[in-house]
Design a protein around this nucleic acid. Sequence first.
DNA 1: TTTTAATACCTTGCAATACAAAGTACCAAA
DNA 2: TTTGGTACTTTGTATTGCAAGGTATTAAAA
Lengths: 109, 109
Amino acid sequence: MDNITENARAQMRKGVLEYCILCLLAKEDAYASSLLTQLKEANMIVVEGTLYPMLIRQKNQGLLTYRWEESPQGPPRKYYSLTDKGREQLALMDDAWREIIATIEEIKK
Amino acid sequence: MDNITENARAQMRKGVLEYCILCLLAKEDAYASSLLTQLKEANMIVVEGTLYPMLIRQKNQGLLTYRWEESPQGPPRKYYSLTDKGREQLALMDDAWREIIATIEEIKK
DNA sequence: TTTTAATACCTTGCAATACAAAGTACCAAA
DNA sequence: TTTGGTACTTTGTATTGCAAGGTATTAAAA
């Protein structure tokens, strides 16, 4: 895979990363490290330096809240969960995603 | 539509803009202004300050070439067309796009 | 007790880039 | 010769993705 292609894939991933986070949190509350693992398993390559600031942004936008929880081992975890506003936003992003897919299909014709 | 949502939509669009350009040029050669019109008609909001530098980048990557053509009225037009490399890249981006869609579907489960 | 390893969260500095806005240039018709 | 339409380009600012490094907690090993 050349650099150009990898860069293009990265662009596409970036575009939906915020959406993916809301999707995952809609299923269950999670802390950053576990989100990281889930996203990597889904081939959404992300690194800490991207995820942490993004969670903070989404929290500052009122889409997420968090609570601290003890960990069975290691430091405490910051569990994020969707707010009502976050759920509304997710619904809007579902629409946006469908529209993008439709747009590409249209352009492909 | 609030700012957060508009921003999220914009992020998604950005992610596929390079892809859209290659898709459009695969159908027929075009000059920047007409690409702008086509993209806007497809709801892919773009402005000149985004499109022109992007075309130059893609040309510098060897994905596009251009030729000048007289316009029926107004200044000459820079018609872009896909190179062989551009067509290869487009095929790779088709794959990347399918993968992203699959990833979201997976995450949505 | 000290060190090591694992886990987890956060920040800094750099590079890429999207966009608004302004600039340059060409052409034809008024 | 001025106006309006078309077209390409550049500049300055703000955002943000990422590599790399930093801080902190815990438990187990040395």
